[in-house]
């Protein structure tokens, strides 16, 4: 057995956990903005815009996040761009989020009852007005529970940033493990830290879903 688990190690893991939260927020924010674009393009009146976006979604959803991560971190520098671990992780996670969240938000927009679109058209609102004043506010309500649920997936996938050397929770654990060599103990602790971040979100998402279900029956 190596050294005991000193306070310094715990602080280091805590810092890693903060970076996990930070990276998740970056991915949610940047990915969310892209996802909105993806969702709006998927319901565009132009056929080629819809097709191009469908292709983009198929490509991203068909590729593992890990391969995206490697492509950004090792692939781009070979084309002459220098990429830091944080940038590589943020970009690949944002792409991943944009494809999945984009599809989910498109479904939410299309779930707004047809009559709402027609009514807005009857009031002679332009397409932009219809979207921003009538459809999107209602779509946000429909999209909220699955989006909160998806945040759990984002947090879990930030663990993949460890492979490009970004010091988030898993990488911090690996570094601590290199000094004290108690892998099982450390990964158990890390699993618990992830659980304490993800579980509240899972519960919250389930509550929101139950609430949304009640409303639709009322």
């Amino acid at each position: 057995m190596g050294q005991s688990f000193a306070v310094g190690y715990l602080l280091f893991l805590g810092k890693g956990a903060l970076w996990t939260a930070g990276l998740s927020s970056i991915a949610l924010l940047c990915g969310g903005i892209l996802a909105l674009v993806v969702a709006l393009c998927r319901i565009s009146p132009q056929k080629w815009v819809r097709l191009v976006m469908a292709l983009y979604i198929q490509l991203i959803q068909g590729t593992p996040v890990l391969v995206l991560m490697f492509l950004m971190y090792f692939g781009l520098p070979s084309l002459g761009w220098s990429v830091s671990p944080l940038l590589a992780a943020s970009v690949s996670l944002s792409l991943y989020v944009s494809a999945y969240l984009g599809e989910s938000w498109r479904a939410a927009i299309q779930a707004v009852p047809r009559a709402q679109w027609e009514a807005a058209e009857c009031l002679a609102l332009s397409r932009t007005q219809r979207m921003t004043k009538v459809i999107l506010p209602q779509a946000v309500r429909i999209a909220t529970p699955p989006t909160v649920g998806f945040m759990v997936q984002i947090i879990k996938n930030t663990s993949l940033a460890s492979v490009v050397g970004f010091i988030e929770l898993v990488r911090a654990g690996q570094i601590v493990n290199n000094t004290i060599f108690q892998p099982f103990l450390i990964y158990l602790l890390i699993a618990m830290l992830y659980f304490s971040m993800c579980y509240p979100l899972s519960i919250f998402s389930r509550k929101l879903e139950a609430k949304a279900g009640e409303k639709s029956y009322a």
């Binding site: 890390i190 992830y194 899972s202």
Partner: peptide
């Protein structure tokens, strides 16, 4: 709940070292 709220990467390491 334990599996759905932890990353696969950590699960693989846990099985490996466990």
């Amino acid at each position: 709940e334990a599996i759905r709220n932890t990353p696969l990467l950590v699960q693989i390491f846990l099985v490996y070292f466990g």
